[in-house]
Simulated assay, not measured.
Amino acid sequence: MTNNGTPQDAADIVAAEWQSILAYDEDLIDPVVPRTAYANPRLRGLFPMVSHGTLYLSRCTRFPWTDDIGTMRKLVVGGYRVRRESDKTVLGETETVQEAIDLIAANLPEGCGPAIDGTADDL
């Protein structure tokens, strides 16, 4: 809800969460990860979350969130592994953050658009 009691639309909720995450300290997430994801227009419309240094994206703004969008984890040997949580599919391994973000965007679920204000059950 906004201060005047009217509901925010999904785009406002998503934009506010992105601004929060983009301001996070390095100890929460490598800043290049959310910046690179935010630069992608399709990913920018999704609801972002951070846990244990990993950026998660959801097609909805409320719990339970979707888990069908790839996430990336830094590999000890360098590079990143991109994996979709919903079915545990490894989408690939990349050398750079940009390549990992591009791989996530290329593997968005069919019909994936901006996040809705609701839960995964509302999709």
Rank of each mutant, 00 (worst) to 15 (best):
A10M: 05
P114L: 08
V33I: 15
L91E: 00
R62L: 01
L123I: 02
G70T: 08
T119R: 09
A106P: 00
G5H: 07
G78S: 07
L123G: 06
A16V: 03
A105S: 13
R83D: 07
E85D: 14
G45K: 14
T54K: 14
R62G: 02
A10S: 13
P64V: 07
G5Y: 02
C112T: 06
T96G: 07
E26M: 07
L22P: 00
T2Y: 09
R81N: 07
V97R: 14
G111C: 04
V77F: 11
R42G: 08
Y24T: 03
D117P: 03
T36F: 06
F47A: 09
M72L: 14
A105R: 12
Q98Y: 10
E93M: 05
T2M: 13
T94D: 08
Y38R: 12
L91R: 00
A10E: 07
T54W: 06
E17Q: 15
P109S: 05
Q19K: 15
P7E: 15
M49H: 12
A105F: 01
T119E: 06
L123C: 03
N40D: 15
G5C: 00
L108A: 03
G118K: 07
S20K: 13
T61N: 04
V97L: 04
Y24D: 08
E26T: 14
G79W: 00
D9M: 10
S86K: 13
V32C: 09
R59I: 00
R35C: 02
D67C: 08
A37W: 02
D68N: 15
F47N: 10
A11C: 01
P114Y: 09
L46G: 02
N107K: 00
S58C: 03
M1N: 14
G92Y: 01
V90K: 13
W18Y: 04
L91H: 03
L123T: 06
Y24A: 05
G92T: 03
D27E: 10
R81C: 03
R44Y: 10
E26N: 15
L75P: 09
R84A: 00
S86V: 10
G70P: 02
P31Y: 06
Q19C: 10
R42S: 12
G92I: 01
I101G: 12
V90N: 14
D25Q: 15
N3C: 11
W65M: 11
Q8P: 09
D68T: 08
V82G: 07
K74T: 13
P48E: 02
H52W: 11
Q8I: 01
D68A: 01
V33K: 10
G113Q: 10
L75Y: 08
L103V: 02
G79A: 08
G53D: 01
Y80K: 10
K74H: 12
P64S: 07
L108M: 05
V33Q: 02
D87T: 00
L75C: 03
Y56L: 06
L55D: 03
C112K: 03
R35E: 14
T2W: 12
P41T: 04
S86W: 00
P41S: 09
R35N: 09
V76L: 12
I116G: 06
V76W: 14
T66N: 01
E93Y: 05
L28C: 12
G70Y: 05
R44L: 07
D121E: 10
L55K: 08
N40G: 05
L57K: 06
